[in-house]
Amino acid sequence: MPSTANARSILCIQAYLSAIVIYLYAHDFQQAQKCYNDCSEVQAFLNSDQNRCATKLLSAYEEGDTEEVKRIGQSSAFNHLDHVVIRLARKLPTGDLQAINKDAAADDGEEALDEDDLT
């Protein structure tokens, strides 16, 4: 049975990286970070190549480094993911990284400073 458990673990790790890629492709950097934080609580993910790839990818987004995002999107860490996710990763980034980060910062600020919310 260890091989079945190992295969299941690998599929979960791949699904975590896939989810992060999909959020980034959809320009939802904040949700990609939340997803990464949730996945980081899984020990198998923390010790994986997919984790290292996700960390580099999110860092490149934070830094606004379009060329690094493109380089990471071409890396072998994506080779064993679903073919649709591989295509999405190869197309990253799909927008202006600076605008994505500003939108995420504005969303945080709106939630914290909503003067019309009296609850």
Rank of each mutant, 00 (worst) to 15 (best):
V84D: 04
Q43V: 15
S18M: 05
L11R: 07
C53E: 01
N79E: 08
A26C: 14
K34S: 13
R71L: 15
T55A: 12
A89K: 02
A106G: 08
A26K: 13
K70F: 11
S9L: 12
E41Q: 10
Q74H: 09
G73H: 01
A104V: 08
N101G: 13
C39A: 11
F45Y: 06
K56I: 15
E67Y: 12
D38A: 15
Q30K: 09
I100C: 08
P93H: 06
I72F: 03
D103Q: 07
L88I: 09
A106Y: 00
R71K: 15
A104F: 01
L46T: 13
D96S: 11
G95M: 07
T94Y: 02
Q30H: 08
L97K: 00
A54G: 08
N51S: 11
Y36Q: 05
L57H: 00
K56G: 13
A32H: 01
Q98T: 12
S40R: 06
L46E: 12
V42E: 03
I100V: 13
V42Y: 01
Q74S: 12
I13Y: 02
A105I: 08
V84A: 09
A19K: 02
L17I: 07
L17Y: 01
H83A: 14
E67A: 15
A60Q: 03
C39P: 06
R87H: 09
Q14F: 02
N37I: 15
E68R: 15
A26R: 12
V85S: 05
L88N: 01
S48N: 06
C39E: 01
K91E: 07
Q31L: 10
S18I: 05
L46G: 15
Q30V: 11
Y25E: 07
